[in-house]
């Protein structure tokens, strides 16, 4: 059921349209952090259901995905999300573009699981009681209702990351960005989370160092030194990326290269 908030104003302007197929369009995007050129001249558009991002440390992956939900802003060029310039719709983005971080301990804000889930609903304007009820219902839907009053600190690593993902999903975004979500998980927990992710309606944009998670994605972006080195299906990109890593590691390692 759709609820229209009574405080809605008529002079609404600059609204993004979350139903269009292309969710992000980069046009000649450049980004520098400090003195470092992080992204140089990236142009592309994102629309596929599942897109993977690979690259070595410092290749600009993290900054790239942060440009899509406004956590970073481009120095030059434009980033359009759902057809609108990101500067115009930044305040609205958390609703449509969810973001899951590498370390669940950096993401969860509230002491207990129930409060953590309810926070997303409070952010959308629901009152405390309604947010609490809906959070419980949402946890039931995802068979986690037993965790509702548990302190976040006492969960297993896998449970922590699952709750972080649910805390973002409860806001019902159209796109879910994940920055190495499996990095702190063991192989089993990582695979369980991946199975959950694949069942979602949301489009995924996911960074991963474990390439096996990306094998059946629709598209892979390979970033190197701030630009797109390769952009194609996993069958093409993943073997090429793997070969490149092998080739580099075969060269003699000095402290400077590490």
């Amino acid at each position: 059921m759709a609820l229209w908030h009574p405080l809605r104003r008529k002079d609404a302007k600059k609204e993004l349209n979350p139903n269009q197929d292309v969710y992000a369009r980069f046009d000649r995007v450049k980004l520098t952090l400090g003195n470092r050129q992080v992204l140089s001249d990236v142009s592309l558009s994102l629309s596929e259901k599942r897109i993977g991002v690979v690259g070595l440390n410092g290749s600009g992956k993290s900054s790239f995905v942060r440009l899509v939900n406004g956590l970073r802003r481009a120095d030059s060029g434009t980033v359009k999300v759902f057809g609108s310039d990101i500067d115009d719709v930044a305040a609205d983005l958390p609703r449509f573009v969810g973001f899951v971080f590498q370390n669940p301990d950096h993401q969860a804000i509230f002491p207990t699981v129930g409060e953590e889930i309810a926070f997303g609903l409070r952010q959308l304007g629901f009152d405390k009681a309604k947010a609490r009820d809906d959070a419980l219902r949402f946890l039931e839907l995802h068979s986690c209702s037993a965790l509702v009053d548990k302190p976040f600190a006492e969960l297993s690593e896998g449970q922590k990351q699952l709750i972080c993902i649910l805390a973002v999903l409860v806001m019902e975004p159209k796109v879910l960005i994940l920055d190495e979500p499996m990095a702190s998980l063991d192989g089993l927990a990582g695979r369980k989370i991946m199975q959950k992710l694949k069942k979602l309606d949301q489009k995924l944009l996911m960074i991963s160092h474990d390439l096996s998670f990306l094998a059946d994605f629709d598209r892979i972006l390979w970033l190197e030194d701030g630009s797109i080195r390769m952009d194609s299906v996993p069958g093409d990109v993943l073997p090429a990326f793997r070969a490149d890593v092998e080739r580099r590691s075969a060269l003699e390692l000095g402290g400077d290269d590490l």
Partner: peptide
């Protein structure tokens, strides 16, 4: 000044 549409779960 923008409207926010709340959708139920």
């Amino acid at each position: 000044g923008r409207n926010v549409r709340l959708t139920g779960l």
